[in-house]
Design a protein around this nucleic acid. Structure first.
Lengths: 239, 239
DNA sequence: ACCTGAACACCGTTCAAGT
DNA sequence: ACCTGAACACCGTTCAAGT
């Protein structure tokens, strides 16, 4: 098993004397990687580019980081530190849920490449856990039973992540007619009448959509408790 | 704008005479790429590896394909052809929704690397459109108004795609203790009491979860029509 | 028009050698 | 123990040259 928790940086005693350049360290690598991510997107955050930005060779990073996928996980959690899980106590659980997920959405969209990173790496660092714990807390206050809450939290995070990803993809396209918008917007009325009719709605984003989906998911969560499912299974087994 | 629809293969007249090797063609490239995808995963499907498998150099593919991202879109749609959108007429819309999304899930999980591809490229080819149109049809039968259905379909596809992706990621880990399962399973009870309590539920998948989430989303969709949202906005504007 | 080898500018990762 | 240059085995994409 791993001898060292990768999310807890091992302390490196910086050598005394002329600090011409910042000594290499776990934190320095993750910080610089995050910087490159927000500046140049996920493609721009390679081990080699991080090494170069840190004024060293690519091999040097392997002292602190196992491989690229670990760096991805590290950077994602570094970014999730910016998610605010605090919301005024006096607010309702609905408002707090909206606020916390809204903060998550903000963080994802305000750093180029981050939404894409969040879509491709499963978050399991301390900041992701803190975020998750907060969501479970809020749902508990809403009266959702715990097994249901576990699946519900996953669904909520997933939706917000994907929405941020789509948002960032849209921002990347210089030509708005290109790619997705082009294909959906120009869809044949004869072949796909329904898509044609709702083509504007499909591409629209914005706060209204965010709010609607959150409400719909929460409504479903509150009305379809997981226990029903278990019950049905048990009944079937007995018949 | 594009002079040629990339989803409609341009017909190449194969030169007469000794067909020692299959002539290069749009379809041959996409087929071979799909083959490599299911055999070696997304990493194994590179332009170079496709070219090599087709017994040619990497530059040759650029006659038929603009770039890698287009090949991704092409292969995804090629795979979506396998999704069955037909379900017995006499079935209820709930059953048909479950069947169609179930078929989508099956296709994604039965081809290595496909779920990952579906997570990273937005589907807008003819087979994706056919799938989308079918989902809109089913929701219309359920009595969902069209703007709501547009957002709902997105949410449904998104969830199934992500579930298949998580499934495929789990299958990749040889060591079940590694990565995500390790981090979530070994979570500190003192620091994250709620996560600790539901850690088994978080990682569990299976049909029960699929069914529960679908029901929860549908329940929410039926109960939170989008028009309410528009109404609220209008009222706010007037006040 | 189609196909291609070679080149360009990159990757992640390993390894042997240095301090 | 930390750091590194060089090498290995790859990438996507372009370009000039061939048919």
């Amino acid at each position: 098993m791993g001898e060292h928790n990768p999310f807890e940086p091992r302390k490196v005693v910086s050598r005394r004397g002329g600090r011409v350049k910042e000594p290499l360290s776990h934190a320095a690598i993750v910080d610089k990687a995050f910087e490159l991510l927000t500046e140049h997107g996920l493609e721009g955050m390679s081990l080699r580019s991080v090494a170069k930005a840190l004024d060293t060779g690519p091999a040097s990073l392997y002292v602190y980081v196992d491989d690229l996928s670990q760096l991805h996980a590290l950077v994602l959690d570094r970014a999730l530190a910016k998610v605010s899980t605090k919301a005024a106590r006096h607010k309702s659980w609905e408002e707090r849920l909206h606020a916390v997920l809204g903060s998550y959405y903000q963080v994802l969209t305000q750093h180029r490449g981050l939404a894409q990173l969040a879509m491709s790496t499963i978050a399991a660092g301390p900041n992701a856990l803190r975020f998750l714990e907060t969501l479970l807390e809020i749902l508990a206050e809403a009266g959702v039973d715990e097994p249901t809450a576990a699946w519900a939290v996953d669904l909520l995070m997933l939706y917000v992540t994907a929405l941020a990803f789509e948002h960032s993809q849209r921002a990347k396209d210089l030509d708005p007619l290109a790619h997705v918008a082009g294909a959906i917007g120009a869809v044949s009325e004869a072949e796909y009448p329904r898509i044609h009719r709702v083509r504007a709605a499909i591409m629209s984003g914005g706060k209204a959509r965010f709010a609607w989906t959150l409400r719909a998911i929460v409504e479903g969560i509150l009305r379809v408790p997981i226990d029903q499912e278990a019950l049905t299974r048990k009944l079937r087994r007995k018949s």
